[in-house]
């Protein structure tokens, strides 16, 4: 296990990435932008309130805004970070040499996945202290923040695995990128759209019943899940209208379905990284 997560590929990528000054400049810039956003938000709210106060419900609103901005950032950046890691080496003609070494395919794929998303993880974790400003004003519990952090990391890993998958099976980076963004777009916009349609169709029926189709699309949508963490009450009301008739919370269904996606993506990538040397026997 230690070899899997502390492997040569990862060491090298870390060395390259964290050596460059640009990386830290990028991180600093991101944190600065978040700070300005928060300060600006608080400033505007207190200007508008007669007492000059920043109330807990406003603090909560701000937190939600930040949470969705970060989710958007994650979904937008992860495909770009991961979809080029294998195909890029192929294009730079460094992959062949790497594949003739003793490193196992599992170690290469896992090393690539973890190292490619490491900087994004760092960005998210580094921004957590800024989030905690909202604790000062209330409206959000530390437990909720932790939950959302775990949700982010999990989502990054799954979207990252989709990027790695396309990077491994598609020869060219451009095509791998387009494919990964396509799948990401479907999981965000496509599922939301299909969810809305299936809700509309269901409401046309004589009596509102369970709506497994809507449930299926909702469980695939990271935006829905985040909303569920932020607004449990409003969300429960919605959940009651959909579902299979059994009481599985949407986040659990998300956890299971995305874990399955992750495992499939990683296993296929590992198996397809190197050619199958076996001769196909001709009939």
């Amino acid at each position: 296990m230690r070899n899997l997560f502390l492997n040569p590929v990862m060491n090298k990528e870390f060395k390259l990435r964290f050596r460059s000054f640009k990386s830290f400049l990028g991180l600093a810039f991101y944190l600065l932008a978040l700070t300005i956003l928060i300060v600006g938000f608080i400033y505007l709210q207190t200007q508008n309130s007669p007492m000059g106060l920043f109330r807990p419900d406003q603090s909560r609103e701000m937190f939600m805004l930040l949470a969705f901005i970060q989710l958007g950032l994650i979904l937008f950046i992860t495909p770009g970070l991961t979809a080029g890691v294998i195909s890029g080496e192929r294009e730079k003609q460094t992959l062949n040499i790497l594949l003739t070494t003793n490193q196992s395919s599992t170690s290469i794929i896992m090393g690539k996945l973890v190292s490619s998303i490491s900087f994004l993880l760092l960005m998210i974790i580094a921004s957590m202290p800024i989030y905690s400003i909202v604790f000062l004003f209330g409206g959000i519990s530390p437990g909720q923040v932790l939950l959302i952090l775990i949700f982010y990391i999990f989502t990054i890993l799954v979207f990252g695995s989709i990027g790695i998958f396309f990077s491994t099976i598609v020869r060219r980076t451009i095509i791998a990128m387009v494919s990964t963004y396509g799948v990401a777009l479907f999981l965000i916009g496509g599922t939301a759209f299909l969810f809305t349609i299936s809700m509309a169709v269901n409401s046309m029926g004589a009596m509102p019943a369970n709506n497994p189709v809507a449930y299926f699309f909702a469980m695939l949508n990271p935006g829905f899940i985040l909303f569920g963490f932020l607004e449990p009450n409003a969300f429960n009301e919605l959940s009651n209208q959909i579902g299979f008739g059994i009481d599985v919370p949407l986040w659990a269904a998300y956890l299971v379905s995305y874990s399955i996606i992750f495992i499939i993506m990683i296993v296929v990538s590992i198996r397809k990284l190197r050619p199958n040397m076996k001769v196909k026997s001709e009939a």
Binding site: P8, V9, N11, K12, K15, L16, R19, S20, K92, Q93, T94, N96, I97, L98, T101, N102, Q103
Partner: peptide, 22 residues
């Protein structure tokens, strides 16, 4: 035909492959 990783020094280049061979 082969490529090399940029931003890697000669020693680090060999070190990486050495590590890859365990």
């Amino acid at each position: 035909f082969f490529g090399v990783y940029d931003q890697l020094k000669t020693v680090e280049y060999l070190d990486f492959y050495g590590a890859s061979y365990g």
